[in-house]
């Protein structure tokens, strides 16, 4: 494998290059030939009906799912190569889950320091300094000593973002980060993600928040039935979709009471 890529080198090659990706769970084909490049600093929002393979695609990028075919290059490293040290690649790729998945046996601060100390071998003081800076960034500096169970869903999700950022990732993956939240808590999480995008973070966001995808996304990818149906600038895909399937989906999502599908 190659050495961890510096941002300068990464700007030449795409941060993520997915080519001919297939994924099957037993007999069930979930992804049937995905090609996707994500460049440095790009925010790519992946939308599509449930079961279309969006989350599976995201999970193939950091190898939480093992692809059954094709290649996935992350920061210039082909993660499907069995000889690649995936743990090393993952330290550069932050992931935020739908169910937050904060470590239940640790405080907020410990959640944000444990991997820094154990994996990156940072000192306690350095790890805590970085963790507190990131908690500040998501607006939760005052909850450092709380336990996850004491936080609201929105707060837990922002801690999860701070935890991922504390590893200084070069790419962030978001797997439906607001789908498990009460509606009034969604805004805070989206605001943090918007700040992150403005700061130039490379992001792949699987989401049902069409307004977010349109406003914050540079590109929107519409998936259906295990393939990418449409891939283009956010305004175009959501505002003026070319494909009939995209139009049908957007109509259903944007106006759920409208049953007369085109």
């Amino acid at each position: 494998m190659t050495a961890p890529t510096t941002p300068a080198a990464a700007s030449a090659a795409p941060v993520v290059r997915v080519a001919g990706l297939h994924k099957a769970f037993g007999e069930r084909e979930v992804l049937t030939g995905i090609d996707l490049d994500v460049r440095q600093g790009e925010v790519v929002c992946v939308i599509g009906p449930s079961g279309s393979g969006k989350s599976t695609l995201l999970r193939c990028v950091n190898l939480l799912e093992q692809p059954t075919g094709g290649t996935v290059e992350v920061l210039g490293v082909d993660v499907t190569d069995p000889d690649v040290d995936i743990d090393q690649v993952r330290t550069h790729v932050g992931m935020v889950f739908q169910q937050f998945n904060l470590f239940a046996n640790m405080t907020v601060l410990e959640n944000c320091t444990v991997a820094q100390r154990q994996v990156l071998k940072r000192s306690r003081s350095e790890a805590e300094r970085i963790a507190r800076a990131n908690l500040e960034r998501v607006g939760l500096a005052d909850r450092a000593d709380a336990h996850p169970s004491q936080l609201s869903g929105g707060q837990q999700q922002r801690v999860a973002i701070a935890r991922a950022l504390s590893m200084d990732p070069q790419l962030m993956l978001f797997d439906e980060p607001t789908s498990a939240l009460d509606p009034e808590l969604v805004g805070d999480v989206l605001a943090v993600m918007r700040d992150l995008a403005d700061a130039g973070m490379t992001m792949i966001v699987v989401t049902h928040e069409m307004a977010f995808a349109r406003d914050v996304g540079d590109r929107v990818v519409f998936m259906d039935g295990g393939v990418i149906v449409e891939d283009g600038p956010a305004d175009q895909v959501i505002g003026a979709p070319r494909e009939a399937r995209t139009r049908t989906f957007l109509q259903r999502v944007l106006d759920p009471t409208h049953t007369d599908v085109a």
Binding site: R90, T91, N101, V119
Partner: peptide, 19 residues
């Protein structure tokens, strides 16, 4: 999800088990 979160932060299988 607890395991997946730990693995996504670069922790090895054994370390995830222990921590």
């Amino acid at each position: 999800g607890q395991v997946e979160a730990a693995r996504s932060l670069g922790m090895s299988h054994g370390r995830t088990l222990r921590t």
